[in-house]
């Protein structure tokens, strides 16, 4: 069995790529994609941890899987919401560039 640390490494790399994407992209669509990446990085981490948990048998502890299912559900809802917001944004401002969406700043 592959060591847990490799999974965690993969998860961390994916997460940081996602974080970089959120911070550096100007397009709202790309930011949403980066957020998805970060969520999935967390999913990998959780499932790997769950499958390595010690117990009476394999997959005896379902906590990680459960939370991953939740995250997938929330991510689906979030994408639906985010895309709707982006659509409205585009209709109003004819752009999805977040730098131009700055009505809430001081």
């Amino acid at each position: 069995m592959v060591d847990l640390v490799w999974f965690q490494l993969l998860s961390a790399v994916l997460f940081v790529i996602g974080l970089y994407g959120v911070m550096s992209r100007r397009s709202a669509v790309l930011i949403v994609m980066s957020i998805e990446l970060m969520l999935n990085a967390v999913n990998i981490n959780l499932i790997a941890a769950a499958s390595h948990m010690e117990g009476t048998g394999k997959f005896s502890n379902f906590d990680g899987q459960l939370i991953a299912i939740f995250i997938i559900t929330v991510a689906a809802a979030e994408v639906g919401l985010a895309l709707a917001v982006i659509l409205r944004m585009y209709r109003n401002k004819s752009t999805v560039n977040v730098d131009e969406i700055n009505l809430m700043k001081w």
Binding site: L19, V22, M23, S24, I31, V98, D99, I101, N102, L103, M104, K105, W106
Partner: peptide, 17 residues
């Protein structure tokens, strides 16, 4: 502190991170 409210998403993200 209001100068930190830039309106740029990446500043907020950075702060959050």
């Amino acid at each position: 502190i209001r100068v930190h409210v830039t309106g740029h998403v990446y500043t907020y993200t950075l702060a959050m991170a």
